[in-house]
Amino acid sequence: MALKDINLQIRDGEFVGLIGKSGSGKSTLLNMIGGIDRPSSGAVEVGNTSVQDLKENKLAHWRGRTVGFVFQFFQLLPTLTAAENVMLPMDFCKTFPVRDRRQRAVSLLERVGVGQQADKLPATLSGGEQQRVAIARALANEPAVVLADEPTGNLDSVTAQAVFDLFREMATAGTTVVIATHEADITRVIDRTLEISDGALV
């Protein structure tokens, strides 16, 4: 979905909910912020970085360090354990010394409530556990921004509530969180709601 006339500023540590129908442009807007899509005109600035000006490899490193992604289908790498999945962004971006990575991964997993599952493969975890691991992975490099696209779309309502609470904690701790969702309950935890329709903010 193409976006048009979007003029949007999100503050540090703000928790923003993007709501809109399927195909309204929510995912496209998230992709623009995260450098997955590039705008045909206009600019996307995250912190002091003009995302659209970055070359592919620099963009990959920037993304790894600055943005944490959480997807609807968890998207954990099936051949890596929970802890290894969390360590992977640190490996790619070399943000922490090698010897500290495992400890940090386990501590992040504990923070999201799945520390006991650190050495398990994704296939052996429940959906809720997998999404928690995915959130821990998103936080691996202490990103300034976390982008979540329908993160609770595949979870039951109780687990979804718990996941929203996690995002709230992250925002409170200073991380900017943008979440695209259909869930009405989101209003309970977010700072601001943005509604998008046919590619434009309404």
Binding site: F74, L76, L77, T79, M87, V98, L121, A123, T124
Partner: peptide, 24 residues
Amino acid sequence: NLSPNSFGSAVIDRLLARLGGNYR
């Protein structure tokens, strides 16, 4: 899903998962 097959259910998967290393 991310991948149509699930890795982790067989013994060999678990054995491979035990193979560690710092280069993910």
